[in-house]
């Protein structure tokens, strides 16, 4: 599977529009971790709806971060007008951290709008919500604070006392998330149980280990797990969430698609489609309105929703409380 995806993930430039665009037509390059999905669609639709003369080209690295250096060169060679990045790994590969500004491996001469970065400040991608801290970078933010996710579980299940997290070392944001929760949860009175998916493997972990880890979590008395800040686990969401439910574990995640399309129980998240529209707003402000990216505040997503998977709730025998039903978006899967 790993091999197949690596083979498939040649650098493919998928052009969504014609190459022979008029000279005034601006080019936006979207760099995706795993295919053009909801966010990519939102970006394209919003640009099209704006009437601004711009085309969106997409490049899919198919989880292979080693390809990002080539993407940087392509952007420079093709004189793209703006780059939109998806996820922490892609963003770090394209613009590096604040400490790496000026490093030729990263873009500092083309405007970049980052999206779906779980912790842009912890990873030193940006300085603050008010400004990114570098002239060519603007961004979006689409998460609620982790304390909020904990409170959501508490609202749902007042007996909640222990939270599990599966992490892997090859994604920096996965490790950062583990460290963040280690610090946060004791203050909230929650016991934290973190297991590494594939210890000792610095590369892409083996997804086949997921069911084993879930069984371990069950043995440790974990009834709730958090899944976020991991593109790999999100990509393997079906296996991950199904294994969790089989072990009586409910998954809460900022990835709404894991609830709608997989077997996660609960999420409070903004739609990626809406995040794509936010990225388009930033792109238009830069390309059309002439704003300096570094002067733009990080645009925060609104329109968050509780989404509950009722089939999973039944399987876990954890029916949402009445107050949740008044507000939640109920799905069955």
């Amino acid at each position: 599977m790993k091999l197949v995806s690596a083979c498939v993930a040649v650098v493919t430039l998928i052009f969504s529009s014609t190459f022979e665009a008029a000279a005034e037509t601006k080019t936006i390059l979207g760099v995706w971790y795993e295919g053009c999905e909801h966010l990519c669609e939102g970006l394209k639709d919003a640009i099209a709806e704006s009437g601004f003369d711009a085309q969106v080209r997409s490049v899919d690295i198919a989880q292979d971060k080693s390809l990002l250096r080539g993407v940087v060169e392509t952007a420079r060679n093709d004189h793209v007008d703006l780059v939109v990045t998806f996820g922490t790994s892609v963003t770090l590969g394209i613009i590096g951290t604040l400490d790496e500004v000026g490093d030729p491996r990263f873009l500092d001469d083309i405007p970049v709008v980052f999206t779906v970065v779980a912790d842009p400040f912890g990873t030193r991608i940006a300085e603050s919500f008010e400004r990114s801290g570098r002239e060519n970078v603007a961004g979006t933010f689409n998460r609620v604070p982790e304390a909020v996710n904990i409170e959501i579980i508490r609202q749902y299940d007042p007996s909640f006392k222990k939270l599990g997290l599966l992490y892997h070392a090859n994604e920096r944001n996965s490790v950062i998330k583990k460290e963040e929760l280690e610090t946060l949860l004791p203050d909230l009175g929650i016991e934290f149980v973190a297991l590494e998916l594939d210890p000792g493997n610095p590369g892409v972990p083996d997804p086949a280990l997921i069911p084993d880890r879930m069984a371990e979590f069950r043995e440790l008395g974990v009834r709730w797990m958090y899944l976020g800040s991991s593109s790999f686990l999100r990509f393997n969401g079906d296996l991950y969430t199904s294994s969790a439910v089989e072990n009586g574990i409910a998954i809460v995640s900022p990835y709404e698609s894991l609830v709608r399309e997989n077997r996660a129980l609960l999420s409070i998240a903004a739609r990626y489609y809406d995040v794509g529209k936010l990225a388009a707003d930033q792109a238009l402000a830069i390309l059309r309105d002439g704003a300096v990216p570094g002067d733009l505040p990080i645009l925060r997503a609104s329109d968050f929703a509780y989404v509950v998977n009722m089939d999973v709730a039944r399987d876990l025998n954890r029916i949402p409380p009445f107050a949740f039903l008044q507000i939640a978006d109920i799905v069955s899967n």
Partner: peptide, 23 residues
Amino acid sequence: AETFRPILDLGLPISMLRDGDAI
């Protein structure tokens, strides 16, 4: 307002609820 309470109790602004108009 009680419907919005879970969102506000989380410390999130009321604007963050999707489909608030429908509620």
